[in-house]
Design a binder for these strands. Structure first.
Lengths: 252, 252
DNA sequence: CGCTTAGTTGATTGGGATCAAACGTAGTGG
DNA sequence: CCACTACGTTTGATCCCAATCAACTAAGCG
């Protein structure tokens, strides 16, 4: 039993490395020793369940969180009781970057399904970044990536119609899941239609109708939360993603 | 003449400090020596004119830019020739943070009126941040602030109607200008109606009609690009900004 | 097995886009 | 200086996409 526990702990460590640290380390080399130092400040938490909060708006900011398995949504209360879903966070993705500035969380983060979450105390991460330049650089890149992603969302909400939005959402899910080694064409959506609609700036009914339409058009198979993408290429076309190597007619 | 030039140069240095550095230094203390080191890596550029580009999408990322005077818009090409205006940048604000990740600019930055722009070579800033922990912290805060601002925009584009969007835009301009010592109620908009509409996800005509309506309702005086805010409070009400200290009825 | 919540489908409506046209305003060159 | 052009802005008329309203079905759950 004791033996098993040790093995289990090691497995967690390995899993956590693969998942938590890759965002910070993968793109370019931290030496093994630095990875160990980084690994040393990461707190593993017990599994969290649907509806649990990582943090709520207004709370003091202490840590960043990394999704190891499962999924999390972040959302901000809008005036008049409603809320705006700001994002869905899949394994390997980081949560809480927006709270650094005010030292206080402006949004809330709620677990969508049973999930394993790592916690990284931010002040310790900052200390480490001070002494490891490449880690500092990775952190700048991480923050910057979030800004770039937000810009894509601004374009989506500002310029795209309902169909394009849902297609872009599905493509995004597909890409992010496949990046983590999961299927790009067969996955479960852990969020409700309502949450998808909220995120995309659409009514629930519109989302539902579009799922039906995509299915009718042979782009998807949808059964409840289970999605099978049948025609990724067409979906990308709808989402307005231009294939770089394809024929470009309107080169402007 | 030589004398005058020296004075002028010093004035520029002082102006540049007040303006460029405040974003990086103001919130908490860098010691004077560190401010000098930071000041040392900032490049002053000659005035730029309407239509000039700070950078274009696809270019290699080398520097961040800070608006000293004037204004700049950033925009990304959307598929099918259109473009999405990502932001308007007023004095004291930083441009280019989204390019850190890919080491390449994803959007373009175009000067809206005659402007003075400072350039900060990013790799030198990173070096400096490594050796000045409080500067590193300021930079994290800066990036984080951008993410927070983007989240506000997501809420605006996802949940607010045309009227609320334009009101929010005007309030934002008012606040940001007054933060720089300019009037909060009397200012010139350097961007066209078309650019405002693009930014807010609205058609030009809608923006124009709303300006007219706000004027009819006694909220504004508008003459071309000149805006006088007559009723800031009501405008904030429309924008959905809840006054904290006012009576809260629906505390939920 | 009721009860509640999530999801689907249909009917209707409305806000803002689009189309169309007039009107400055700025710039350009004769 | 004024005609000419081009562009930005305003205003009006019409249309359409997606929201809303409404009814129903399917799941989850105590």
């Amino acid at each position: 039993m004791a033996q098993r526990k040790v093995i289990s702990f090691e497995n967690i460590r390995v899993a956590c490395r693969n998942c938590t640290l890759s965002q910070l380390c993968l793109p370019m080399g931290l030496v093994a020793e630095d990875v160990d130092r980084l690994d040393g400040i990461i707190k593993r938490s017990r599994p969290m369940h649907r509806g649990d909060h990582l943090f709520r708006g207004g709370e003091r900011f202490r840590s960043l969180f990394v999704v190891k398995t499962g999924s999390v949504k972040t959302y901000a209360p809008s005036s008049e009781g409603g809320e705006q879903v700001l994002g869905f966070h899949l394994p390997g993705e980081i949560i809480g970057l927006d709270a650094i500035e005010k030292d206080c969380h402006a949004c809330s983060a709620k677990v969508l399904e049973t999930s394993a979450i790592c916690e990284i105390p931010f002040h310790r991460l900052e200390e480490l970044a001070s002494s490891i330049p490449s880690l500092q650089h990775q952190m700048f890149r991480l923050l910057s990536k979030e800004i770039g992603h937000d810009a894509e969302m601004l374009l989506l909400l500002g310029k795209k119609n309902a169909e394009e939005r849902l297609a872009a959402f599905l493509i995004s899910m597909s890409k992010r899941l496949s990046k983590r080694g999961l299927s790009a064409t067969d996955f479960y959506l852990s969020m409700s239609r309502h949450e998808i609609g909220n995120y995309l700036g659409l009514a629930v009914e519109t989302v539902s109708r579009l799922f039906t339409r995509f299915q009718d058009e042979g782009l998807l198979n949808v059964d409840r939360k289970h999605v099978q993408v049948l025609d990724l290429r067409s979906l990308e076309g709808i989402a307005g993603i231009v294939q770089a190597e394809d024929h470009q007619q309107h080169s402007n």
